[in-house]
Amino acid sequence: MWRAPVGQELVERVPVLRDAGAFREARRIFREEYGGLKALKAELAFAGFVDSERLTTTTKPFNLFARIAAGEMQQPGMEQEQAALKDFGAAFCVCKNKPENDAQWDSEDPEWVGKASMSARHRFLTTRDLRWTFFNALTLGMTEEEGEEVPSLAEAIQLLEDLKAAALTYVANVRGWSPKLGLYFHVFGHNSVNSLHLHVVDMAQCGPTFQKLKYKNCSLNAVLKVLQEELALASEPRKSPMLPAVASRAQTEAERFGRVPEAVELNVGGELLTVSWALLLHLPVTSALRQAAEGKPREGEALAPAQDRQGRVFLDLPGHLARAVLDLWRLRCLRGGSEPRIPCANEDQRLIAEVLGVPVEPPARVLGPGGVALLAAGVGAACAVVLRRGV
């Protein structure tokens, strides 16, 4: 199967993707490091899976579930099973595996393990909505439209809840299914078909393939949880949950600067760093990092901000050092204090902190030869006293 470079990278970065934590991390990496929707859409369009805003349903490339959803093809003998969806049949289609894959569900032959159905009863539910952002769980709720994040996430959450209800309706109306139901997505990179499909698995009779693919069976509930978290954050943009200690000051200064204390994404030496306005506004007004984020030019200075191709502030500095400095600043701000300063582990880190305008602690004094001798003499005398006293 064709796999986009983004998908390959995600598999390498998140090789086990079966719970909310891994799914949350995959979405973060996708957004922050791999260009998000814009980059992926270009890759899918190049491969022929996307035309404009919709999935393609031609035979090249062959996108099975998209073709079934569009009515371009039918699987024989599925009429009664489709009817079992009741009212959900208008929005979803139930699909099946190849007959030979179903027949080999309990085979331990290496030829079939990983290819056969995951259970004695294993079906797929796909959506008739062929918008390309619905092609996989990874992109559900994401949008390129400014100000549309909340409605987009709400719509995706409703889709997931409807899919779950449709699956329960289906198994209730088809004979042979047990009450033990598994509902799973294979997140992009780990998937085999580039159109949304929910694996509906009877957990009472799982086969070797289920165990083989367990590492990438991401439950519907895990996906739903992450999208609900994102919706909660998107619905309250004026809060700064990471830095409650400085939120009050950030709010005051944000109003003065005409900014909402959300987050800003910076490109530092090719590494994307996301920083809350609360954190930035806790820096001195003269901080180069703060002024760069506010769009104030600093021509001729060490830090001269530019823009990358996505319009983000670009700082031509080592990204890993800048990230370390910002993480230290986060910790200092969380601890509170009127004038927080960060300790620096080495001169490179100190240099980057000074260039960014992040306050640093003064370097530790280095004793000269005389100072070392005095210190040694003092320690020796103290030890002698302790020994004489028998402590």
Rank of each mutant, 00 (worst) to 15 (best):
residue 11 V to I: 07
residue 12 E to P: 04
residue 14 V to A: 07
residue 15 P to Q: 03
residue 17 L to M: 10
residue 17 L to G: 09
residue 17 L to C: 13
residue 21 G to D: 13
residue 23 F to Y: 14
residue 30 F to A: 04
residue 30 F to K: 10
residue 33 E to H: 13
residue 36 G to Q: 12
residue 37 L to S: 11
residue 39 A to Q: 13
residue 39 A to H: 14
residue 43 E to P: 11
residue 48 G to Y: 11
residue 48 G to K: 05
residue 49 F to Y: 03
residue 57 T to L: 03
residue 58 T to A: 15
residue 60 K to N: 14
residue 61 P to H: 12
residue 66 A to N: 07
residue 73 M to A: 14
residue 75 Q to K: 06
residue 76 P to W: 12
residue 79 E to S: 13
residue 80 Q to C: 13
residue 86 K to Q: 08
residue 96 K to M: 05
residue 97 N to Q: 10
residue 101 N to I: 00
residue 103 A to H: 02
residue 103 A to P: 04
residue 106 D to Y: 02
residue 106 D to M: 04
residue 109 D to M: 00
residue 114 G to S: 08
residue 115 K to T: 01
residue 120 A to N: 07
residue 122 H to E: 07
residue 126 T to G: 05
residue 128 R to G: 11
residue 132 W to Y: 15
residue 133 T to A: 14
residue 145 E to P: 01
residue 147 G to C: 07
residue 149 E to L: 01
residue 151 P to I: 04
residue 156 A to S: 15
residue 162 D to G: 05
residue 164 K to Q: 15
residue 164 K to T: 15
residue 169 T to C: 15
residue 186 H to D: 04
residue 189 G to Q: 06
residue 198 L to C: 08
residue 204 A to L: 05
residue 206 C to E: 09
residue 207 G to E: 04
residue 214 K to H: 08
residue 217 N to K: 10
residue 218 C to G: 09
residue 220 L to M: 14
residue 224 L to I: 13
residue 225 K to L: 15
residue 231 L to P: 05
residue 232 A to P: 03
residue 234 A to Q: 07
residue 235 S to N: 10
residue 235 S to I: 09
residue 237 P to E: 00
residue 240 S to P: 01
residue 243 L to Q: 06
residue 243 L to T: 00
residue 248 S to I: 02
residue 253 E to K: 01
residue 255 E to S: 05
residue 260 V to L: 03
residue 260 V to T: 02
residue 265 E to R: 06
residue 268 V to W: 02
residue 270 G to W: 06
residue 272 L to C: 10
residue 273 L to Q: 02
residue 279 L to Y: 08
residue 280 L to A: 02
residue 286 T to P: 04
residue 287 S to G: 03
residue 291 Q to T: 15
residue 295 G to R: 15
residue 296 K to A: 14
residue 299 E to T: 11
residue 301 E to W: 05
residue 302 A to N: 07
residue 307 Q to G: 12
residue 312 R to Q: 14
residue 313 V to Y: 08
residue 314 F to W: 01
residue 315 L to P: 00
residue 317 L to M: 10
residue 318 P to D: 01
residue 319 G to W: 00
residue 320 H to N: 10
residue 329 W to N: 00
residue 330 R to N: 06
residue 330 R to L: 04
residue 333 C to D: 00
residue 335 R to E: 12
residue 335 R to N: 11
residue 336 G to H: 07
residue 347 E to H: 08
residue 349 Q to F: 09
residue 351 L to S: 13
residue 354 E to P: 10
residue 357 G to T: 13
residue 364 A to G: 08
residue 367 L to P: 15
residue 370 G to I: 03
residue 372 V to A: 12
residue 372 V to D: 11
residue 375 L to E: 15
residue 375 L to Y: 13
residue 376 A to M: 09
residue 377 A to P: 12
residue 386 V to S: 12
